[in-house]
């Protein structure tokens, strides 16, 4: 298939996944923020942390409402939910002939709905409905993808993009939330609970891990647990599987080999790293390895045309 189309599909997947992850994160942190957590002196998922997660600018004064507005409805902010959906919609329009009509309609309607009406009033009253909508529409999009799109090379790039993005978002949150080496802030369950809620994984965690949702078990779960679809390990695995399917010669493909090594590495670390492992460092390593994989993907499939991407700082 055309390199350009593969690239559009990859980024369509990424944008839809990013919109959903951002919505879940803001929703989870918003409800945790409304209530006090006396036992947890160093709550790390502050609104400033949210800006760091999204690599957004750090104004001197950070308050809840301005962060919510900037990351949800600000069309001029490329990291906002509406901007992600807007880019996804443009991408989907470009590849309308490749994806199914239902998928196109799903994403196009989402974009229209987010732009119409007085969304900022809804956001002021209670952002839940806005985030709930984005979550549902994202689920609809991926559900339609599974039901109506041919499982060909095109769908492989779409899936690879979506899963690549969810791995990246979870890693960003983990890196900001995990204690840094030399930190003396004792990390307690309040933050972990907020993190779990921010990823939508609370129930999966409590069914899978016996014991309290303390920081380290939660971080290990989000990083390693292959049975949880949104963990880093299962997302990386899914990207690997998708590219293996799309690649004409997977056994000689840089990105496939790199991802395959990363999958094995994560599995190895899960078994060998003890309770005192430096997960913050591990997250950083995984993140940079994924960034390299991202470059490999651009080099190999997208003719290297956009390797560095357009960065925002």
């Amino acid at each position: 298939m055309l390199a350009r189309i593969a690239h559009e599909l990859f980024w369509l997947g990424r944008n839809v996944a990013r919109a959903e992850a951002t919505a879940r994160m803001l929703d989870g942190i918003f409800s945790a923020d409304l209530q006090g957590r006396p036992d947890d002196p160093g709550l790390r998922l502050t609104w400033r942390s949210v800006l760091r997660i999204m690599s957004a600018e750090q104004p001197a004064q950070v308050d809840r409402d301005s962060v919510l507005r900037a990351l949800t409805l600000d069309v001029d902010n490329p990291a906002s939910v509406v901007a992600c959906i807007g880019r996804a919609r443009e991408g989907a329009r470009t590849v309308r002939d490749v994806i199914s009509a239902e998928m196109w309609e799903a994403i196009n309607t989402t974009n229209l709905t987010l732009l119409e009406g007085d969304l900022s009033a809804r956001l002021r009253k209670g952002p839940y409905s806005v985030y709930g909508y984005v979550r549902e529409r994202s689920a609809l999009f991926w559900g339609l993808t599974n039901r109506t799109m041919l499982r060909d090379e095109a769908s492989a790039f779409l899936q690879a993009g979506g899963r690549m993005e969810s791995a990246d978002m979870v890693l960003r949150m983990l890196r900001v939330a995990l204690p840094q080496p030399g930190d003396d802030i004792s990390w307690r369950d309040g933050q972990a609970l907020a993190l779990l809620q921010a990823t939508g994984g609370f129930q999966a965690f409590s069914r899978s891990v016996p014991g309290a949702p303390d920081a380290l078990p939660v971080a290990r779960f989000l990083l390693f647990e292959r049975a949880y679809p949104d963990s880093v390990a299962s997302a990386v695995h899914a990207v690997h599987v998708a590219l293996e399917r799309a690649d004409h010669a997977p056994s000689r493909s840089e990105p496939v080999l790199r991802l395959s090594r990363l999958v094995a590495d994560l599995e190895f670390k899960q078994r060998t790293s003890g309770q005192d492992a430096d997960l913050a460092r591990l997250c950083e390593e995984v993140q940079s390895e994924l960034a390299l994989a991202d470059h490999d993907i651009a080099d190999r499939y997208f003719a290297g045309a956009v390797a560095p991407g357009i960065a925002i700082t």
Partner: peptide, 12 residues
Amino acid sequence: VPRMPELRLGGW
């Protein structure tokens, strides 16, 4: 807070 890589945006 650790240094975070930039958020990539894609785009042909």
